[in-house]
C-alpha cells in the first residue's frame, strides 16, 4: 500500500435492523447507560472533568468515561475543531459501534464561534458529522452539560436520536463535505 493512497472508506456499513419486540426496552436501557469516549478536542474538555467527578457526578445518570471508541456510545465534540482534529474525530466516530450519538459543546462547532475567521478551525460541524444534541455556551458549565445529556436521554427514550442512521443513509453527502476540506487521508484502514 502506497503512502499516499486515499483511505477514504467508501463502502457503507450494513444497516442495523432497529426495532422489533425489544425496541422500547432497548431505548430505555440505552438512554440510561451512556458511555462517553474520553476524547477532548478543544477547551471544553476541561469542563467534562468536574462533570464526571465528585462535584457534579454524571455517573448518577448512568454515564461513564471509557478509554476506547469501540465501547463508547457518545462522542463529545468539546469545542473548536481544526482540520487536523476533524480527521481523528471522523475516525473515532466511525470506529464506534451503532447506535452512537454525538454531542457538540460550545459555540465553535455550531458556527465557528470566536474562531469563525480562523484558517484551520471548521465553521459548522453538522456538515461533517451528524449531531444529536447541541449545548451552547462558551464554554457551557457542567450544569448545562448535564441538562444537555438529560435532553439526549429524552431523545433516545423517544427514539428520535437517529443521527447514526442518517449518517449511514447519507454517507455520500457527508463524504463529499469531508473530502472538500480533508485533501489527503493517510491513515490505516479499519472496519466499522
Amino acid at each position: 500500500m502506497g503512502k499516499d493512497k486515499n483511505y477514504f472508506l467508501n463502502e457503507k456499513p450494513e444497516k442495523m435492523t432497529y426495532g422489533g419486540v425489544f425496541r422500547k426496552i432497548n431505548d430505555w436501557a440505552r438512554a440510561r447507560s451512556l458511555w462517553v469516549v474520553a476524547y477532548g478536542t478543544g477547551c471544553g474538555s476541561i469542563e467534562l472533568r468536574p462533570t464526571f467527578t465528585s462535584r457534579f457526578d454524571a455517573e448518577r445518570l448512568g454515564m461513564r468515561m471509557v478509554g476506547t471508541p469501540r465501547q463508547a456510545d457518545v462522542l463529545i465534540i468539546s469545542g473548536y475543531l481544526t482540520v487536523k482534529t476533524l480527521k481523528r474525530v471522523i475516525r473515532v466516530y466511525e470506529q464506534m459501534q451503532s447506535p452512537k450519538y454525538v454531542v457538540a459543546l460550545g459555540a465553535c462547532p455550531i458556527n465557528g464561534g470566536m474562531y469563525y475567521d480562523s484558517y484551520n478551525a471548521i465553521n459548522r460541524l453538522d456538515l461533517y458529522l451528524p449531531v444529536d444534541v447541541w449545548i451552547t455556551g462558551c464554554m457551557p458549565r457542567p450544569e448545562a452539560i448535564l441538562a444537555g445529556f438529560k435532553r439526549l436521554q429524552g431523545l433516545i427514550d423517544s427514539g428520535k436520536a437517529d443521527g447514526w442512521k442518517k449518517y449511514i443513509e447519507n454517507l455520500d453527502w457527508y463524504r463529499e463535505n469531508q473530502r472538500k476540506i480533508i485533501k489527503n487521508w493517510r491513515m490505516p484502514n479499519y472496519n466499522w
Partner: peptide
C-alpha cells in the same frame, strides 16, 4: 497544518476570513 494548499497563513497578505468562508462555508 496537514495538507495545506495556500500561501502560509500567518503572512499578512493572506485573507483568513475569505479563506475560511470559501473552505468551511458561510458562518
Amino acid at each position: 497544518l496537514e495538507d495545506w494548499d495556500d500561501i502560509p497563513p500567518m503572512r499578512r497578505d493572506f485573507d483568513t476570513l475569505k479563506y475560511s468562508m470559501e473552505k468551511f462555508g458561510e458562518r
